[in-house]
Amino acid sequence: MNNSIQKLYSIANKNERLIIGLMSGTSMDGLDVALCHCKNNGSQTQVELLNFITMPYLDDFRADVKSIFSRRDADLQKVCLLNELIGITHADLILQSLKKWNVSVEQVDIIASHGQTIFHAPKSLHQLDNYPNATLQIGDGDHIAVKTGIITISDFRQKHLAAGGEGAPLAVYGDYLVFSKTGEDRIMLNIGGIANFTFLPGDRDASKVFSTDVGPGNTLMDHFVQKHFPGEYYDKDGRRAKSGKPNNDLLNALLDNGFFTIGFPKTTGPELFSLAYLIQAQEVSGTINLCEEDMLATLCHFSARGIIDAIKRTIDSSTMPKIFMSGGGMHNPLLVEILKEALPTALFSTTDELEINPDAKEAVLFALLANETIAGNPINFGDREGVPSVCMGKISLPN
């Protein structure tokens, strides 16, 4: 038997595994690296976050990736080159992280790599009858495995697509395993570039569980800041938005899109909620000359409305669940304030309460997905469109 396959077999038969989860989102501020201790699998899964760091990207590398991100006219040679370069760069950042933590490569069982999404194309966006749902993440897993010497699982979203899903969001698979609680309805709200949540019913019935995108989280606000305030990547603490006033005409134009009426689960991306989308809404609403602060205030309310309306569609307002936040948007006080005012009966917290650093949550979830691929079996989420019962990821061996 091939030595690497023998090692994989041995890891699969272990009761406890050390797994590195990786996440690089639409903000492209850096690579989230989470070192996780995973015990058991399936409904018996336990996870402990041992170490977490966001390894920052160099400006030139970030600019390279942004040059092909969410672009229909992307340079194919650049896509090809960056598929390899991202894998090599992520491997270097993993090795640097392990050195900081004084953890040897030999101690790590598996790397779980999400890769870098460069284009997301569900049918609801491309609307081409003869083409399937599609998504593309780059950052080759073989490069990571060979450079680190650690078995790597990557490209998780393709199995989701192949089994009838839209490739996102995948949070439901990990959220259900470790965050469900008998007797307490929960919403795991992640406000990244795109906002999404997982609904976890208190009866722990997997057939009722779902994850869904609900609209933009930080993506429009961040891209607006990057365009109009050179050198800034986001509206820190929502300061600029706080000094402005939301414009109702623009807000209504932004909300006038069929995505918001599609049933759950659904997915979207910056391919729809882009600066071009914003400009079109400004033209329709006659708000082209709105000042930057009012624009940011409106965009913040826009992100909040997508979240609020989706939660209200899921849960009766008189029986609001506990909402556990994660992602960069939870650090925006104005956004959180709008959510709390609109959902006064909900109890808001973060995944810190559940002993998972909220900034690390997505990276941890990919470690959990890898753990299930290696040691578990598909959870039965019922025969529902968009929530296939599958294990995900492609396995890359170091040699």
Score class of each variant (00 low, 15 high):
3 N>I: 13
6 Q>L: 11
7 K>L: 09
14 K>M: 11
16 E>L: 06
17 R>K: 12
20 I>S: 02
21 G>H: 00
22 L>T: 04
23 M>F: 03
24 S>F: 00
24 S>D: 02
31 L>W: 00
35 L>I: 07
39 K>M: 01
44 Q>W: 02
44 Q>D: 15
46 Q>F: 07
47 V>M: 00
47 V>T: 01
48 E>A: 07
49 L>Y: 12
49 L>N: 11
66 K>E: 14
66 K>C: 04
67 S>T: 10
68 I>V: 12
69 F>C: 08
76 L>C: 14
77 Q>L: 15
78 K>R: 14
78 K>F: 06
79 V>Y: 07
79 V>W: 08
84 E>L: 15
86 I>M: 11
87 G>Q: 05
88 I>Q: 09
88 I>R: 10
90 H>T: 09
94 I>V: 13
97 S>M: 00
98 L>W: 09
99 K>P: 09
104 S>D: 09
106 E>F: 03
106 E>V: 08
108 V>T: 03
121 A>H: 10
125 L>V: 14
126 H>K: 15
131 Y>Q: 15
132 P>F: 08
133 N>L: 08
135 T>P: 02
137 Q>H: 11
137 Q>E: 09
137 Q>N: 05
138 I>P: 03
140 D>T: 07
140 D>K: 09
141 G>D: 10
142 D>L: 14
144 I>N: 04
150 I>F: 00
152 T>P: 00
153 I>V: 13
154 S>T: 06
155 D>T: 13
165 G>F: 07
166 E>R: 12
169 P>Q: 04
169 P>S: 04
169 P>F: 01
178 V>S: 01
179 F>C: 00
187 I>N: 04
190 N>H: 09
193 G>I: 06
196 N>R: 11
199 F>E: 06
203 D>T: 08
203 D>R: 05
204 R>Y: 11
209 V>G: 00
212 T>S: 13
212 T>Y: 06
213 D>C: 00
215 G>P: 02
215 G>A: 03
216 P>W: 11
219 T>P: 03
233 Y>I: 13
241 A>Q: 08
251 L>M: 10
252 N>D: 15
253 A>R: 07
253 A>F: 08
264 F>Y: 12
266 K>R: 04
267 T>E: 09
270 P>Y: 09
270 P>K: 11
277 Y>T: 01
280 Q>H: 14
286 G>L: 06
287 T>F: 05
289 N>K: 13
291 C>H: 03
294 D>F: 05
294 D>N: 11
295 M>L: 15
297 A>S: 11
298 T>P: 00
298 T>R: 04
298 T>H: 00
299 L>Q: 03
302 F>G: 11
307 I>W: 12
307 I>M: 14
315 I>L: 13
316 D>C: 08
316 D>E: 14
321 P>T: 11
323 I>K: 06
325 M>W: 03
328 G>M: 05
329 G>H: 10
332 N>I: 01
345 T>K: 15
347 L>T: 15
349 S>K: 11
351 T>L: 13
352 D>P: 08
352 D>N: 14
355 E>A: 10
361 K>M: 12
363 A>C: 13
364 V>Q: 02
364 V>G: 02
364 V>P: 06
370 A>S: 07
370 A>Y: 03
374 I>F: 01
379 I>R: 13
379 I>W: 09
382 G>V: 11
382 G>S: 12
384 R>D: 02
385 E>P: 14
391 C>N: 15
391 C>A: 13
395 I>T: 07
397 L>N: 02
